[in-house]
């Protein structure tokens, strides 16, 4: 498959840029950790409600980190009009979409790998389990697929920093609900079957939005 080379090249390039610009990665992580801490004060956590409230706070932190990260991923492309350079490559527009989405997926998974252990420690809710890893990976997949399409749109507008969350957060609300609920079921000590409905919902969202974003992406890039 000749398209895998360019897809991987884009994702690799995005990650290289993100981590070379350490100030962004560091401030993004500090920001999402702060979200965890601030919400800890905003919501009074008790031994009873922390399994229900905690995962909500965790996913808000992940969503914020994701929105900032995906905005960054396209602002990089606007600097010196590098996006035009990408579009001059002899590949289809969906190849560009897959590459950008893969880069965001890996970037968010890395952020989650830091956030999840910190959350476990701060909230005393053990989510370091296979079930949560699978749920997080599935939710992050849909998140980065939909987010990449919306970030590519937002970067072409005025006030792009605010356009992405305004457009994107309502759209992914079902995915956020599903991720929060599935994480909570598992954190409470539940098994796969307790979270099954929510995992199914996540899968539906993933498939629908992956296909929709891939099909619609080339309309985003034309001018």
């Amino acid at each position: 498959m000749g398209v895998l080379g360019p897809i991987w090249a884009i994702a690799r390039k995005d990650l290289l840029l993100e981590f070379r610009n350490r100030d962004i990665v560091v401030s993004l992580l500090v920001f999402s950790l702060l979200v965890l801490v601030i919400f800890n004060f905003a919501v009074e956590l008790t031994p009873v409600n922390r399994f229900v409230v905690g995962p909500g706070i965790l996913w808000v932190a992940v969503a914020f980190a994701g929105v900032i990260g995906m905005n960054r991923a396209f602002i990089i492309e606007k600097d010196r009009d590098a996006l035009d350079g990408l579009m001059l490559a002899p590949v289809s527009r969906d190849t560009l979409f897959f590459g950008k989405a893969l880069g965001s997926l890996v970037f968010m998974l890395i952020a989650e790998a830091v956030l999840f252990p910190v959350f476990t420690v701060l909230f005393d809710v053990d989510i370091l389990r296979v079930e949560t890893a699978v749920i997080a990976a599935m939710a992050t997949f849909g998140f980065s697929a939909a987010g990449t399409a919306f970030a590519a749109m937002a970067v072409n507008t005025r006030s792009r920093e605010i356009m992405l969350p305004v457009l994107f957060l309502p759209v992914i609300s079902p995915l956020l609900i599903a991720a929060v609920e599935a994480t909570a079921r598992v954190a409470e000590g539940g098994s796969w079957s307790d979270a099954a409905q929510w995992i199914q919902l996540t899968a539906v969202f993933d498939i629908v939005f992956f296909v929709a974003a891939a099909v619609l992406f080339h309309f985003v890039l034309e001018d």
Partner: peptide, 30 residues
């Protein structure tokens, strides 16, 4: 595939080296 383009902007990534930029472009052209 058969056209080389220069526009007003450099179309490069500022935080990649010249070599990395050229290699990235070469990867995109397989």
């Amino acid at each position: 595939r058969t056209t080389g383009v220069v526009t007003h902007s450099a179309m490069l990534y500022g935080d990649l080296t010249v070599r990395e930029n050229l290699h990235f472009a070469a990867r995109m052209f397989r």
